[in-house]
Nucleic acid binder design. Structure first.
Length: 678
DNA sequence: TAACTGGGCGCC
DNA sequence: AGGGCGCCCAGTTA
């Protein structure tokens, strides 16, 4: 068993950042390889024999321990040591995955985990390095302007912005050598505290990392064994190569659509900004328009003081400062006319345009150009949430606006490349089904199992609609869905999701817009109400909730999700059912990804089929396939049979947790924003 | 300057 | 006591 860790010139390995230091620890101790970095272009200078040596090292060992090992595998790939297909993924022992499994609610960085499980404080290594790096960076800014210090705006590091100093660990040794070679400054002493340690500070820090990563693995695995969670760990491990592949393949945007939309919306933003400024002038106010959707003093002063609109706090606000969010602006606009009304409407339009432009600019920092498309490779983090959801960043592709306000959406820019097509598969009503079948709630089980039968036709929302508006439902039946699409039916949906998200009585009633709705829903679904109560009690007793056990993995144990406690030691009643549902849904999705990936790999071997997974959206999977034929014209000469296989595989994951999980199929030949149901 | 906080907004 | 995220901006604090 050995552990390894790479230090890099930044996290953006697909944009030119590279490892310059590899540390590894095994039974015989801790060793390392260190390479000089050219300060002008930030590229490490790596001897061929070191690459060969690393190849041997990686291939010889049986188990490999890493902290967020997927990143370190990508490091090795970026310098030609290994690659996706040949790396022995299932031999990995990852202290990030293990740490989340053992305690999903605690900080997972190495320093915190080593403190928690080994009682050792390694923060002094990092603190010393941070201090020295910052001094070195200051020194370079003053005396060596040609040296390429990490900062926002460098094309090779689009993620720069936070903790930039971490990308400049190489700088200490580079500066020390530079001084030794040139002796150009007598007073060379950028850091008064550590002037003579520039050769070794990075090394001390990095070597401690690989050493303690190995120790930490031992502690975590002991805990996993004690709690009998080995099978759950091994199942989770399967996700790493899938995410690695997903990040590599990424998601494409149409470059011509991007240019067109950018131009149109820039004009729109300018126009609306001018309207706002002119209206402000008529109030004797020189409005300084805030960027994007943000709010500044100038805007507040105009709206609340000079126009005299009555401010109200926002729904989710932590303070009682008057809100200027979309919801608040909508409310204000209903109570005003004339210039204030025109102002509010222009401000909303300006924000809409600015949001679109802002999203595209963020993508622009990250994308790679490939002919007529741009390709994004986001970072997907399987331990990025306190539930089992993955988080996504650089850029985040899990919050792409679906529909424009009457206009275009960012989603419409995401288009398949030439001779490609998108498909998406979505677990239908997954989060509503989980408590319904698990409780179980016989009425809802019946409804979900018979989507063709009246009066509810498989719709959870219609059942609640009936409970809250019995007269209307008696009169119109399932037509209520269309008749009250924007009003009662929408409010019912909002309320249902609010409850899934943990809303308590007051919030639920106000979301449903019906007094007493919360209690009526509880009365209608007594078993779900009881499940919620029981799971809150259990969570307070044991500190966590478990997802539904999967009979194909471990019929006894699900994935434990820690519930955070307030200062008084109680768990918020909003949390337990939500974690249970959200976590179980994502367990389903993780297993679905494993099965989908298995099919895709099989097809690749069978006939070279090049289909891949672009993205996962918690209960949904997006696929990028080669265009074969239009399934609407000739289903037999299309990818439809493959998609049906994938659908079958995903649905089978529901069986293993006792929840029927019908999965819908959408075909996107043109753009992700438009889907054709199959 | 850099780090932090809150507001705003998008998704499931 | 409405769950889980990431990103940008403005304004304050160290």
């Amino acid at each position: 068993m050995f552990s390894w860790d790479c230090e890099t010139t930044g996290v953006d390995l697909r944009h030119g950042c590279k490892p310059y230091y590899v540390t590894y620890t095994d039974e015989s101790g801790t060793k390392f390889l260190e390479w000089g970095v050219n300060p002008i272009d930030r590229q490490p200078i790596i001897p061929d024999e070191d690459i060969d040596f690393l190849k041997g090292l990686i291939n010889n060992e049986v188990t490999r321990v890493g902290h967020n090992a997927r990143f370190d595998v990508l490091c090795l790939e970026s310098i030609g040591v290994t690659n996706l297909e040949s790396f022995p993924w299932l031999s990995l022992r990852d202290t990030l995955l293990a740490g989340h499994l053992v305690n999903s609610g605690s900080p997972l960085n190495l320093t915190d985990q080593v403190m928690l499980y080994l009682g050792v404080d390694i923060s002094p290594y990092e603190d010393k390095l941070e201090k020295a790096c910052k001094s070195a960076r200051d020194y370079c800014r003053r005396h060596l302007p040609k040296w390429r210090i990490a900062k926002k705006g460098l094309p090779e590091m689009p993620s720069a912005g936070e903790e930039d100093w971490k990308a400049d660990g190489w700088l200490l040794r580079a500066l020390a050598y530079h001084h030794w070679e040139t002796q150009e400054r007598e007073d060379f002493n950028p850091d008064k505290e550590y002037p003579h340690e520039y050769y070794t500070l990075l090394s001390d820090y990095a070597n401690a990392d690989s050493y303690y990563t190995l120790q930490l693995w031992g502690a975590l695995w002991g805990e996993i064994q004690r709690r009998g969670l080995e099978a759950v760990y091994y199942e989770r491990l399967k996700i790493l190569p899938i995410l690695y592949r997903m990040e590599r393949d990424g998601l494409t945007l149409s470059s011509s659509e991007v240019s067109r939309v950018l131009e149109e919306f820039s004009e729109e933003e300018d126009r609306c900004t001018k309207v706002c400024i002119n209206i402000a002038k008529s109030y004797n106010h020189d409005l300084v328009m805030p960027a994007g959707s943000s709010v500044n003093q100038s805007l507040k002063e105009l709206v609340f003081d000079k126009m005299g609109l009555e401010g109200r706090p926002g729904k989710k606000a932590k303070t009682d400062v008057p809100s200027l969010d979309k919801d608040a602006l909508d409310r204000y606009s209903r109570s005003c006319t004339g210039k204030p009304l025109m102002f509010v409407n222009s401000l909303l339009k300006k924000r809409h345009a600015a949001k679109m432009i802002g999203d595209i600019s963020t993508y622009n920092r990250f994308w790679h150009e490939e002919g007529c498309v741009h390709r994004l490779h986001p970072n997907i983090n399987p331990t990025g949430t306190t539930t089992l959801r993955c988080s996504c960043r650089n850029p985040n592709l899990q919050n792409i606006k679906k529909k424009g306000d009457g206009g275009e959406s960012v989603k419409s820019l995401f288009r398949p490349g030439p001779d490609r097509e998108f498909w998406s598969l979505d677990g239908k009503n997954l989060e509503l089904r989980i408590p319904s079948f698990f409780a179980p709630e016989p009425e809802l089980v019946e409804v979900f199992n018979h989507p063709d039968q009246g009066p509810y036709y498989g719709s959870y929302h219609l059942v609640v609609f009936d409970a809250l508006y019995p007269e209307l439902f008696h009169k119109h039946g399932k037509n209520c869905k269309d008749l009250y699409e924007a009003t009662y039916y929408q409010w019912v949906k909002n309320g249902n999701f609010a409850i899934i998200y943990g809303a308590q009585e007051e919030t639920a009633d106000s979301t449903y817009r019906v007094r007493g709705a919360y209690q009526r829903v509880r009365d209608r679904f007594p078993n779900i109400a009881r499940l919620s109560d029981q799971i809150i009690t259990l969570a307070n007793k044991q500190g966590y909730v478990s997802t539904i056990p999967d009979i194909e993995v471990d019929p006894e144990r699900g994935y434990p999700l820690m519930c955070s406690r307030s200062d008084y030691g109680r768990i918020s009643p909003t949390i337990p059912l939500n974690y249970f549902v959200q976590g179980t849904a994502c367990w389903w999705k993780l297993r679905a990804l494993v099965k989908v990936d298995e099919l895709l790999r099989q097809w690749r071997e069978d006939d070279g089929f090049s289909g891949f997974i672009n993205l996962e959206l918690h209960d949904e999977v997006i696929l990028d396939f080669p265009k074969v034929g239009d399934p609407r014209v000739d289903p037999d000469n299309s990818n439809l049979w493959r998609i049906k296989k994938i659908q079958e595989a995903m649905e089978s994951c529901g069986t293993a947790i006792g929840i029927p999980t019908p999965t819908s199929i959408e075909y996107h030949p043109d753009t992700w924003a438009v889907g054709i149901n199959f």
